[in-house]
Design a protein around this nucleic acid. Structure first.
Lengths: 243, 243
DNA sequence: CGCAACCTTGATGGCCATCAACCCTTGTGG
DNA sequence: CCACAAGGGTTGATGGCCATCAAGGTTGCG
């Protein structure tokens, strides 16, 4: 019996993790080989089909997820059907790392997605064992909070046009490389999703896209594939920053 | 030299903490005597006068604060003067426990307030030393996030009246005892603050207060002191909950 | 008393939601 | 291959909610 045979998953999973598209994610990138090995031992991969739910509002938080591929929308629904999308997740993003008992949002796949599932208890143990992991987790929490504060400001104080403009700039940054926003954006989400994220209606979002098009600020290749033609102008429309 | 003389602050501060009005706060209540002693050793109290700032957007996060008495508003300001209040803090609430380098909001005192200041590094050490503290901190973070998600839903999908109604119910719960909302509410914040929190204008907030008054749902003793006369009705106006 | 800050109430207008129709793409089956 | 249906996106007409502008009331303080 070699060590390899004793703990096959750990080794295989570690390789899996090293080759994982989400290897550069906030959490995983902050881990050394040793920590990653322990994390990998607890990971199981799975898929979610487009349109299906990963989490339903009210679910117990017994698992933690890492998005490997695809796009996930976090949302909240009211009894009369109003929906608010709280955020969009992509490769490398985590779900469920905050310490509450229940999820206060649903998570739906915008397209066929692959994820990594961890048992929450195992993760908690790792966090207590490795201080570096704790810091990473809290850093991710802070980052998620900052994003949420941006959204609050948008919803509370920006006009429809400003919201759409900042949304596009946000996407450009996330899809680009650091400090170098991509000028070519893939919209994984529908107009309805964008509207429900920005507190608007489908029609308003569509109208603003059209307006930006006629202003030569963006170009729509297809409905989900757009180019930013004039980034400075787009930024000036979104602008509404620190005093 | 007695032990008491060697470490006067620890002992005095521990007593200070035990008698602290914020002793029941989320963090402190989760600590045992030993942990509290260490925390107390690192605390310094100070005051902020009404209208003065505790934190300015962009400040380095070198300190952590605990509100002992008074009310604090966290807000964000845009270059053209639009303001969004992100939250109101009272006795027992913490500021700065998320791990980011800078504050992305300002903190202003709504009235004369007393606070407890901790050096961030010390707190970090304690968190690494005592796992119970880490859990408390992450639990507080989750709670803050949940509140923010509520606000996002309000701003994105609720009408002005629904926002004001849920705001009042939220206050009633915070000022009451657990599961027993207070029917007598003290509004530490001005109409302008409420408006900037709910993404509305002063006039709209005032109008809705008046409407709720004529509907016999609330009664205004003074501008900052109101009674909820018909809680169920108020809840039905705010309602817009889980599907 | 007088002033300033805050709050309330009224009149008007604009932004965005709503309602409605049409277009475009995609997929399915005859 | 084409007809058709269905879902998503665009565009137009109308209206309502809430912002804006304006004036007056109330409170509190020197």
């Amino acid at each position: 019996m070699t060590d390899r045979q004793m703990t096959p998953d750990i080794h295989e999973n570690k390789i899996m993790c090293l080759a994982c598209p989400a290897r550069d994610s906030f959490l995983c990138s902050g881990l050394d080989d040793h920590e990653l090995k322990h994390l990998a031992a607890r990971a199981t991969r799975f898929q979610v089909k487009r349109g299906h739910s990963l989490i339903l509002e009210g679910d117990q938080t017994k698992d933690v997820y890492n998005v490997i591929e695809g796009d996930i929308a976090l949302s909240r629904l009211s009894s009369d059907g109003r929906r608010q999308i709280l955020g969009f997740l992509t490769k490398g993003d985590f779900i469920g790392l905050t310490l509450s008992d229940q999820y206060h949002f649903s998570a739906d796949a915008l397209n066929d997605a692959r994820l990594c599932r961890f048992d929450r208890r195992s993760i908690e143990e790792l966090i207590e064992r490795f201080p570096g992991m704790d810091r990473q987790v809290r850093r991710m929490g802070a980052s998620a909070m900052d994003q949420m504060l941006d959204l609050v400001f948008s919803l509370g104080r920006k006009t429809a046009q400003e919201r759409v403009a900042s949304f596009l700039i946000g996407l450009a940054h996330r899809q680009g490389h650091c400090h170098d926003p991509s000028l070519e954006i893939h919209l994984a989400m529908s107009r309805a999703d964008i509207a429900d994220y920005l507190g608007l209606t489908i029609e308003t979002v569509s109208r603003i896209f059209s307006k930006l098009k006629t202003l030569q600020i963006i170009r729509l290749e297809t409905a989900q594939h757009l180019h930013i033609l004039d980034l400075p102008k787009l930024q000036s429309l979104a602008e509404c920053e620190l005093a």
